[in-house]
Design a binder for these strands. Structure first.
Lengths: 201, 201
DNA sequence: CCATGTGAATGCGTTCACAGCC
DNA sequence: GGCTGTGAACGCATTCACATGG
């Protein structure tokens, strides 16, 4: 039941399953049904879920119950605070992206080296010049950063984020960040997705 | 050397390695160096690369040589044709995204159900109303679609793409697409990345 | 019969250990 | 010494097979 004893492959599947459950309108779901939707074998699905502690019955799993168990097991029940670093086209678009404020996430600040931009942009969250990053991140207990700066500044901005105490980065720059193993990084870049797709066609 | 005998984990690493090689300025690189940059063990790295056929020497791998071997092995040497489906904010932004026209990819068309939009938008590639999708995709031999339509239309648009003969989809809608196993799908959605991050913190 | 859950067996990827080479 | 490449050992995730329950 502890977060760390769930294997990485299982975690990935549970995250994906959670998404399916949240869209589902049925009150319950079976492992065979999940097999149909995902392609994973029902055995794997049952093993994954049973890692959360036997919460199935003779007619499957109760949707609501299962999703909250997954959220809890994966640590998605605590709300995480986010910040956006780099307020260009992409960054400023995310400032106004509603989904970043939910029961799970809270967008708490935006940063940019360009002081002008920080002052001019209209935003639902406070914006700060980049030199205040450490101070603000600590004060607001922000733990995840969305890195939206241009390629050339990505590495140094990431290091600054890490020094400020952040523990996870979503990286939108087309760069392989060098980060210590304690920092979790997710790269979001279309060309990579296209390549992956092409390699698996 | 054939695409299919390379295991999925190896493919993923090779894709990532390719990205590193392309940024690298050194003329050669060793497995230990790659270990430092990525965290993968040098043994794994060597096994991965040797799957492409022994192209290493006593002082490592020649950068240029290695990248082109990877591109070839993963099928990234053939140029793929792309289309964008759904020309809202996101879709129309990608119309003008230079990286979608490279030696590897060629953006060939855009589609939207809204005929007005198709006529008004300025775009470097031809735009068509959605009902022409099958015809155009076949005529231009497009094989990958970027799905940028709103959530509610994602599933039906995906099906239309598949019927038109596409074999890969990059899905930007926050939906789990139901697709036959022959179709490769990559989902790009920030909330998923954030959740994954949170689950692995 | 259809479900879940779980030890046992299988299969596959990573790691180890060493041979060969510069 | 450094490096690559590769069979052998290992470990872990998936699959199998079966016990249990409505």
């Amino acid at each position: 039941m502890k977060n760390l004893e769930i294997s990485a492959p299982t975690k990935k599947r549970l995250l994906y399953l959670l998404k399916i459950l949240e869209k589902s309108e049925s009150i319950s779901i079976t492992s065979s049904r999940i097999e149909e939707e995902t392609g994973w074998s029902r055995d794997t699905v049952r093993k994954d879920i049973s890692a959360l502690g036997g919460l199935g019955s003779a007619n499957g799993y109760e949707t609501e119950h299962l999703s909250s168990a997954i959220r809890k097991a994966l640590g998605l029940d605590k709300r995480r605070r986010l910040c956006i670093v780099g307020l260009g086209r992409l960054g400023s678009a995310y400032l106004n992206f509603g989904a970043l404020n939910s029961s799970e996430f809270e967008l708490a600040a935006g940063f940019d080296t360009n002081v002008n931009r920080v002052e001019i942009l209209s935003s639902p969250v406070p914006l700060y010049p980049a030199y205040k990053m450490s101070e603000i991140i600590e004060r607001l207990s922000i733990n995840i950063g969305l890195l939206c700066v241009p390629e050339a500044q990505a590495q140094s901005a990431a290091e600054k984020l890490i020094r400020s105490g952040i523990c996870g980065i979503v990286n939108f720059a087309p760069v392989v960040l060098k980060t210590p193993p304690s920092i979790a990084v997710r790269n979001v870049f279309v060309i990579d997705e296209l390549r992956t797709l092409a390699a698996f066609l």
